[in-house]
Design a protein around this nucleic acid. Structure first.
Lengths: 169, 169
DNA sequence: TATTGTTATACTCTATAACTATA
DNA sequence: TATAGTTATAGAGTATAACAATA
């Protein structure tokens, strides 16, 4: 399983094409490939979202965790990780950081597992993050008609669900 | 500038949703977000492409370099890096590896820069990589009508070109 | 002075292995 | 035996700083 889902480093991670346009004598035969277009669009959006969320001290992955915990109060760490494609081992420092900041609470569930929930502070942070994400989505959604947005989402779902092991077509 | 463009580790990097579906008691409020859909689709495609290319010992970034050098014989390392969004410092080991494998040649251009080109072996590898990428694209393209593919590409271009600094909408 | 290539370095993301304590 | 959490570690990808040689 991969952790590729979440991500986007909130730091200085400017957009891919910053200087590319200045190299006018070169052909870019790769730029028309679907895979690279997806990569560019994804990277652009996540970078952008990352810098927006950074204003409230959250990385995309942290916003994702807060929002998902909010929707699933009492969920346990390992299930949360499975849902989001984050490995158990990599969940540890993520959850520890949110705990340390007082955004989430962890109560023993069955002796080996712990139920996660948002603290009041976490609820606030979550609401703020959702607001930022909403604005961010609206920004990009404005580029497309409603129908094109639906088509885009549908196409992305199809692609995301097809790739796994079915690559031999 | 970012290097986010290229990528996809060719190793064991199975698809994001492998186990997620087994966590049926959890809501996934993030999965409908455009950013995360993009991330998932991108990750799925690049992972898949990575494992296809791995069969011929190439990573996606290496295939990208070969194809771009093929389209721009004599290009210099720094311009290639700028075009692909790879930093000078990070180009060094990439180019060194291709050189060591005898896939590319490097001849002095002006004393400080070197012109890059494919060797016959590199041409072969490049052709092979392009074939794999073609098949791979066809795989995913088959999921969509021609018109939907055009719409998808257009939408991705729009998103990729909009994100950079224009995030304040 | 600016650019090309390079070295060194560091941080993030992701992955595996192995340990513990429970179930 | 299998699971939840943890620790340690390793490999990519990406970032910056600084240096030498050249323009």
């Amino acid at each position: 399983m991969s952790e590729g889902l979440i991500v986007g480093r909130g730091r200085a991670n400017h957009h891919i094409m910053d200087d590319a346009t200045s190299i006018s004598y070169l052909q870019d035969p790769i730029s028309q490939r679907l895979g690279y277009l997806l990569r560019r669009a994804s990277s652009a959006m996540m970078t952008d979202l990352g810098s927006s969320l950074a204003k409230m001290g959250l990385r995309p992955v942290e916003a994702t965790l807060l929002i998902t915990i909010a929707a699933n109060p009492g969920c346990i760490q390992s299930d949360l990780g499975k849902l989001l494609g984050i490995k158990r081992a990599n969940m540890v420092p993520l959850i520890a950081a949110l705990l340390k900041r007082g955004l989430i609470a962890k109560v023993p569930a069955d002796g080996r597992s712990h139920a996660l929930s948002l603290t009041p502070l976490g609820e606030e942070a979550c609401a703020g993050a959702e607001k930022i994400i909403d604005q961010h989505e609206a920004c990009f959604a404005a580029l497309l008609s409603n129908q094109d947005q639906l088509r885009l989402r549908k196409a992305l779902h199809l692609i995301a669900r097809t790739a796994p092991a079915s690559s031999p077509c």
